[in-house]
Simulated assay, not measured.
Amino acid sequence: MRSAKSAVGTAALVAAAGLVLSGCQDGPAQSSDLPSGNVSMIVPAGPGGGSDVAGRAVAAGLEEAADVTISVENQEGSGGALGFSNFLQYEGDPNYLISAETALIHIPATQEVEFSYQEFTPIFKIGEDSTLILVRSDSELQTCSDFVEKAEDGRVVVGFAGGLDEITFNLFEEASGAEFDYVPFGAGSESTTALMGGHVEVVSANPSEAMGQIESGDVRPLCAAAEERYTYDQISDVPTAKEQGIDVAFAQYRGILAPGGISDEARQFWIDAAKQYVESDAYDEYVESAMLQPLTAFGDDFTSYLDEYNDTVVSTVE
């Protein structure tokens, strides 16, 4: 989708409470170059959403793995741009982490902002969250092939809430030659409500945010915009778009980054803690509760993933 560029200002500095880190025995080794004093997990979104849940789950997991205390701070505003802009001020400070997802890439690609993912230090990718393409249960559409074919011949109104949905529908357009009419919403719950009310015909939604409506029978998925089918029982029979002849697969990643300019030692401290967390029952419980695909990456591998992800996003929104 062709988005107009807009300026986003940097907010005031955020004061942190003084929490003292304890020594680590089973987690990464401590040194004077590693986190000391307060450690904060910044969530660039309001409470209760996917980014907030991810940030709090990982903060708790890293506390256990690294034997530290991490406070979580929500910095809501401008679709995440406020929190990411504020995070620039912590350059070189290993006492800060930030929960990130597609918005970190999508916002700089569509708006004039001061930050980009390249300004920060990628620690690890928690997992991936591909969307389901949903219709009302009484819709005439049965597959994603039906969806794009109808748009090729006529009008299909799609609802979207954020960069992930926008990019996914853009990829459907590129793969099929179809064109959709777009209606933006502030949150996935709003677009799903509009779908059930008949105000839009198709929406894109993460499995976890739409599962209640799927299980109640109000909506049903046409396909998953994923490389492989989900293995969760409730949606394991939903085919991928590729199975239906549409070459589209795009996931929202969820990840954790540190500020740019931290030492190699501090970077490795957080990577080691993240690897230990991923091996824990707490990680498995979070992934299942959020219905993520547990596709992880650490350090340089996560950086390479973000480089490729950025290329896809930029080429899609141009």
Rank of each mutant, 00 (worst) to 15 (best):
S137K: 12
I107D: 09
A210V: 13
V203D: 08
V183E: 15
G55Q: 07
V158L: 10
S191R: 13
D153Y: 08
S236H: 10
D93A: 09
I126Q: 11
L171A: 05
S130V: 06
V53I: 11
F185A: 11
S176I: 04
P239G: 02
P239W: 01
K242E: 15
V203A: 07
P294Y: 04
I167P: 13
Q111G: 04
Q118P: 01
E179P: 01
G48T: 06
V14K: 07
G61V: 06
V219I: 15
M291W: 10
E288K: 14
G159C: 02
S85Y: 03
D281C: 03
S71K: 12
A7W: 12
A210P: 13
L257V: 14
G48R: 05
Q234V: 06
I105D: 08
L292A: 06
D146M: 05
G212S: 14
A226R: 02
G162F: 11
V43A: 04
A249G: 11
A258N: 09
S36M: 09
L134P: 13
V8H: 14
E179F: 00
E265K: 12
A273R: 09
G261C: 03
A59C: 09
I167Y: 08
S216W: 05
R220H: 04
C223E: 03
F172N: 03
A66M: 06
E179N: 07
E173H: 06
A241P: 12
S78P: 03
D311W: 00
K275M: 14
A178R: 03
V39L: 14
T143C: 01
V68G: 00
F120W: 09
S139C: 10
G23E: 14
S263I: 04
D300Y: 00
M41L: 12
E318A: 03
S236L: 04
R2Y: 00
S51P: 05
L171Q: 15
P207S: 04
A205M: 10
A175I: 09
E173K: 04
A60W: 01
D67E: 15
R254T: 06
D153H: 13
L13S: 14
N206I: 05
E215T: 15
I98S: 08
G83C: 10
V72T: 15
R254H: 13
T231W: 02
I133N: 02
Q293D: 08
V202P: 13
V14Q: 12
Q276I: 09
P35Y: 06
A282V: 06
E227D: 15
I246D: 03
D146Q: 07
S36K: 14
R2P: 00
T312L: 07
I271C: 03
P35N: 07
K150W: 01
T296W: 10
P28V: 02
V313L: 02
S304R: 07
G197H: 12
G163D: 03
G162W: 08
